[in-house]
């Protein structure tokens, strides 16, 4: 019987090797390992063997069966892999063809910039305050130390609707409103972004509508050095660590002292070039210590409270940052302009 098993094994392995497809392999499996197969037959015939030979032959029969079975499995795996290989070959596509476009939109450049600036100041503990664009003369001017007939009102010719109501000329009235809401108590720490309007004819550098961001901090111990510190932190985050700032005296009716902040020119690093008109500095924003009259009108005791305020124009910052040459681009909404600023 041993010879028979060896013979069966050789025969079966040969057939496995010859099998060309899954069906042939299955046939081999059924033929040799099936219930009616020759190995089963050998095992059945074991009753006739002497008792001591039975385990030996049984073991041998099982080994042969095992060997054939493994061979079949291996062959099967091989065939499946080959089939898969073939399928994958057939499924190959031209990966260089264009993909189906995903819809992409994006924020307006000014919105991106305003949100970026908001976030910088939120990081320094500021909140965002908003107010009406159609404003009462009182909040736009009077509460900001610009009484009727004040010569500085000339600086910002306005769109009046009635004698008492106008399109706000700056976002400063939001500061006056916010302080009033706090009823003489500090701290007030807000950033006020929004649209503003001036009586200007639209051209490359003027727009009758533009945006502004103002900041205000009123508390019991606010110093001008704090203004410098906050603006410096802002400038470095917004324009780069290597930028320096300087404050120059200026004039705004609602702050005293008033300053303008310049940053060192990025183009020339302060050496002087055409961008900074040879000065090495670029004017970025106006600021100052809140005028005592403004504090008083909003219900704060100027002996107890001090504060600083600053205001900047996102259009100007965007124009500097990206070298945009015409302010009207911001409001024309040419998609070739808008899309350029949708990149991450």
């Amino acid at each position: 019987m041993k010879e028979r098993l060896v013979e069966l094994k050789t025969e079966a392995l040969e057939k496995v090797a010859q099998a060309e497809d899954a069906k042939a392999l299955q046939d081999v499996k059924v033929q040799y390992l099936g219930k009616k197969g020759p190995i089963t037959e050998v095992l059945r015939g074991m009753g006739k063997l002497p008792k001591e030979e039975r385990p030996v032959i049984g073991q041998m029969a099982n080994d042969v069966r095992e060997e054939i079975s493994t061979a079949i499995d291996e062959k099967q795996t091989k065939m499946e892999e080959a089939a898969l290989e073939k399928q994958l070959q057939e499924e190959t596509i031209d990966v260089t063809l264009p993909g189906r476009p995903a819809q992409t939109g994006g924020p307006h450049l000014l919105t991106s910039l305003i949100e970026e600036i908001e976030d910088l100041f939120i990081g320094m503990g500021f909140e965002i305050a908003e107010g009406p664009e159609v404003e009462a003369d009182y909040y736009n001017f009077e509460a900001l130390n610009l009484p009727k007939g004040h010569p500085a009102r000339d600086m910002q010719d306005s769109f009046y609707i009635t004698e008492e109501i106008l399109m706000r000329t700056h976002t400063s009235p939001v500061q006056a409103r916010t302080m009033e809401q706090h009823k003489g108590k500090g701290p007030v720490k807000v950033i006020c972004p929004g649209k503003v309007y001036r009586r200007d004819t639209d051209d490359a550098t003027h727009s009758h509508q533009f945006t502004q961001i103002e900041g205000l901090l009123v508390d019991k111990h606010v110093r001008m050095s704090d203004l410098k510190g906050v603006l410096n932190a802002f400038a470095k985050q917004m324009f780069g660590e290597e930028r320096e700032i300087r404050l120059r005296p200026s004039f705004f009716p609602f702050t005293e002292p008033s300053v303008e902040m310049d940053i060192s020119c990025k183009m020339c690093g302060g050496e002087g070039c055409s961008v900074c008109k040879g000065t090495g500095w670029i004017e970025i924003l106006g600021a100052g210590m809140v005028h005592p009259n403004v504090l008083e009108m909003a219900g704060y005791d100027p002996n107890e409270y001090t504060g600083f305020a600053f205001g900047m124009g996102p259009e100007r910052i965007a124009m500097l940052k990206y070298g945009i040459d015409d302010i009207r681009h911001f409001y024309t909404n040419d998609v070739r302009f808008l899309n350029q600023f949708h990149k991450a």
Binding site: F121, I122, G123, M124, G125, F126, E127, G186, P187, K189, L217, D219, K220, H221, V222, R223, S225, D226, K228, G229, V230, N232, A233
Partner: peptide
């Protein structure tokens, strides 16, 4: 250059 003292808001 200094940073404001006093109670910090969360912002």
């Amino acid at each position: 250059f200094t940073m404001p003292q006093g109670a910090g808001n969360a912002g």
